[in-house]
Write a protein that binds this DNA or RNA. Sequence first.
DNA 1: AGTTAGCACTCGTGCCTGGAGAGTGCTAAC
DNA 2: GTTAGCACTCTCCAGGCACGAGTGCTAACT
Lengths: 350, 350
Amino acid sequence: MTLTERRAQLLSLIIGEYVDTAMPVGSDAIVRRFELPFSSATIRNEMARLEEEGYITHPHTSAGRVPADKGYRYYVEALMQERDLPSEVKQTIRHQFHQAGREEDEWVHLSAAVLARAVENAAVVTLPRTPESRLKRLELVGIQDGAALLVLVLQQARVKQQVLIFPEPIDQDQLTSIANHLNAAFRNLTAGEIRTSQAQLTQMEWHVANAVREIMSASDRGGYDEAYLEGVRNVLQKPEFGTSDKMLNLLEVLEQRNLTKLIPFREISADGVTVMIGAENEEDAMHDYSVVISPYGVPGGISGAMAVVGPTRMRYSQTISTVRFIAGLMSEMLTTYYDEGAPPADRQKD
Amino acid sequence: MTLTERRAQLLSLIIGEYVDTAMPVGSDAIVRRFELPFSSATIRNEMARLEEEGYITHPHTSAGRVPADKGYRYYVEALMQERDLPSEVKQTIRHQFHQAGREEDEWVHLSAAVLARAVENAAVVTLPRTPESRLKRLELVGIQDGAALLVLVLQQARVKQQVLIFPEPIDQDQLTSIANHLNAAFRNLTAGEIRTSQAQLTQMEWHVANAVREIMSASDRGGYDEAYLEGVRNVLQKPEFGTSDKMLNLLEVLEQRNLTKLIPFREISADGVTVMIGAENEEDAMHDYSVVISPYGVPGGISGAMAVVGPTRMRYSQTISTVRFIAGLMSEMLTTYYDEGAPPADRQKD
DNA sequence: AGTTAGCACTCGTGCCTGGAGAGTGCTAAC
DNA sequence: GTTAGCACTCTCCAGGCACGAGTGCTAACT
């Protein structure tokens, strides 16, 4: 299923041209534009073959050719050369990152924004998850007669909070004593282990322990449900839209943030960037879009995913490089700050 | 500047009709639709007067009339009757709220989503802010040799976290001792008071105290900069758009989340709902949109703002009622959980 | 065999036209 | 003050037409 050298070249040119102009590209146009040593007739013959084999299509007779999903796929797999991002681009991105504070959510949000801007498409970045979180410490702070704030610090610097209502008034001393007892009993346990723990608890303590367990389970359960979405505007600006249904479909999927629908996270290869082109995505609404996905995080530890969503007409090479780079940056940051047990990495490199 | 009874009625009908159909409404159409006891000619005369005075306009000769900003303004001020939301709607909304956990961010996010859905437009809800936060407790949890997680619990159940890097390795006992000392020294102080505090601190403690101060200042400073935005799709679906520039302008403003530009928060009346129609908004990109804003929170205490953004052609009455209701709900929740010193309110009412 | 010139054919696009429909403004009569 | 009537205006849409960009095919050339 490989193409002759010349046909491959031609496909590459067609894709390049179409990605730039968003308009069907004709045989004559391409010959003139690239000063090919063939006539347009020859090119037409070649195009006919490419079309026969499904790499490109025809919107209608007498329009130029447009790459088909299969064409893009071949391009991504065999033709495209992924070149490193120019170092000034890298520099810019790094710079943008360093303006963030040190809160994890902030990083994620920021990385979505930076990614969206860099690739001029929509970007989705999920919050990273740990495989199963362990309790590092809990804290109870009274805020009212019958209410207290429960703060959990989980393994890998994740902090969770919840207001807890007690059936009867309770003072700070009692709260502190409950917290101390539970800290002693549950330190470094997972939600499941807390459930089966044999610790002797008063009723109040049991009330709190329940909440702890629930919060931790919720945090574990949540797969890729929470994510930051940025740059929808970039996609809607593309010329292929005219407030068409396609656009609304996409918005619908994106806004509901039901990302598992959008992005087949399970198919991500653990180490690299995955590209999903047009109808390769099972979700109907995504048939006109491509998705470039990469996991990020610490292997076997805390991890999330980031994705770029845009029309199939996309600068794949640049997009892939950018996703790879930003995923790398995020992984680096997570490793530096959260990979417990690992030696502290060099934190100053800019 | 008041209108005759009949002209006011007519304006009301025109607005009602236009809001429903999004199409210019003609004299004949309105007579037939509402079986008015006048002929279309009479209505035409009245319309001409309304137009003269700026309440309605003409897209072009021989199109029907369209309400102008001034017309909507008059409607909102004098004609519209704000009726209470139907109780089943209230019920639905309350129900949606009760599915939330007890995390503040979650509430805010949820309220934006619920609001957007209820009014079928875009909704923006800012995170609530306290006037000046006081430190209730701080906690240091080691996560690596030279790094620890600093967790602050501020007054009114706000929790802040940051990873802290120490210049040299430090163990949990040291961290705990630092935390204890700082807790004793800074309990219930504001950022400013911490700065001028005379407490004797070791170098390590000083390092932490600095971070505490910074986090607290940042939290105080942040005005309306962080907010949840939902339902952009609802606006883009409205028939008045055709991927026009208007739309992109709006997206630009909304996506950068520069909400102070979008929404003149300072002009909010402290107690009620403010409506800003079309060109009344100084921001150019907002000239075709109206904004309905309400503050929420505890008077003099923790507070934020929520807003609905949609085309000037908007169901003002329903939107205002909905915003008022949801702002009320949020205020109630904040009061219940976070208004320190107040007696615990009845939490079970559904 | 591969390449190319030539040519008929196909469609989309832009432009014009004309008629239908919706609405207006005005006038004169009620 | 209200209304019928009417001329006028403007949009919208369909049809017709010319143009241009592209294709596919064939026959000739290297």
